[in-house]
């Protein structure tokens, strides 16, 4: 990854009354990546996002966007940000177009042509002159993304961007966000409770719980774990297969079933074991390496804590 830090959090803390709800978050977000923000409800995701866009003040620490401090250089910092915080709440009595016109007047250099482009991009061209109160949740979400993109920001912050979209819409937005990161080099920050969604969309994922960062990894590493994994060989003779595999596996369990054996091995051991089984005359029908889904990993990391 290129070393292009667009957003930087340094020991960010937030207290409400005597309660500390964010307990020192530090991480950097780079241009060109889709960064996922994950955590159970009430973990402090939205609070952190609110602090990033200046809706909430920081109790201590510092947030910079493109090197500009959100507290002391607010206008310069926020000019680089497009965002949806929680739901995309727009003026319901205005049309979609009037809403975009409204937000375009608050930033520099958004032409009518640009509004048109963005509208086409989110697929609202046919309905843009209708009042927002007649929009479905999915259309509101699209309009929300349109207003965030109007001024071509270099940091895009979206809270639950696929909320309310149908599967085709989710896919479209997902690909679009990945494209934005890849091609335009912008930093896309998303939060979501749809974990499978995050897995498909994000390059890196930060997990926060009770206001603390408890994991920050590339999605691939995160899902696959560092090295070992559970592998299942579907075979015709499980007993013989077990005996053969035992040679390779000095320690650890080998489980057997009616038509399979399974064991926890290093990735590099899989071809060797397969070769041995073949030499021993075991017929192999399939080899499945079980990858943990993000959801399982998430529950594992957060201790499967239920939402209070």
């Amino acid at each position: 990854m290129e070393n292009n830090v667009l957003v930087s959090l340094k020991d960010v803390k937030k207290s409400v009354g005597s309660k500390e709800i964010i307990k020192g978050l530090s991480f950097d977000i780079h241009g060109g990546e889709v960064f996922g923000f994950l955590g159970p409800n009430g973990a402090g995701k939205t609070t952190t996002i609110r602090m990033m866009v200046g809706l909430m003040s920081l109790s201590s620490g510092e947030i910079t966007i493109k090197g500009k401090n959100i507290k002391t250089q607010y206008k310069e910092a926020i000019a680089n940000v497009g965002a949806i915080v929680e739901n995309p709440e727009m003026y319901k009595f205005l049309t979609g177009y009037q809403n975009l016109l409204h937000f375009s007047r608050m930033v520099k250099g958004v032409s009518k042509q640009r509004i048109k482009e963005v509208v086409a991009l989110v697929g609202l061209t046919d309905r843009i002159h209708e009042k927002v109160k007649r929009y479905s949740l999915g259309m509101r979400q699209r309009l929300g993304i349109a207003q965030a993109l109007l001024h071509s920001p270099s940091v895009l912050i979206l809270d639950e961007p696929t909320n309310g979209l149908d599967p085709a819409g989710i896919r479209e937005i997902r690909e679009y966000l990945r494209d934005l990161a890849r091609k335009e080099g912008i930093a896309v920050i998303v939060s979501s409770h749809l974990l499978s969604e995050m897995e498909l969309m994000c390059d890196r994922i930060a997990i926060i719980q009770k206001g603390e960062l408890i994991g920050l990894q590339a999605t691939r590493e995160f899902v696959q774990g560092a090295g070992t994994k559970k592998v299942r060989f579907v075979v015709d003779q499980p007993q013989a297969a077990e005996k053969a595999a035992r040679h390779h596996l000095k320690e650890g369990e080998i489980g057997t079933g009616d038509d399979y054996i399974e064991m926890i091995v290093e990735r590099e051991d899989i071809p060797e074991i397969t070769a041995t089984l073949v030499v021993e005359g075991v017929r192999i029908y399939s080899i499945v390496a079980e990858t943990q889904t993000l959801e399982e990993k998430f529950l594992e990391v957060t201790g499967g804590e239920s939402v209070v």
Binding site: L55, Y74, K75, A83, E86, N87, E89, M106, Q147
Partner: peptide, 14 residues
Amino acid sequence: SAGTIKMLLIRPSS
């Protein structure tokens, strides 16, 4: 009340 304040305040205007 409408929640639009969030959209309004995250712009480069004081």
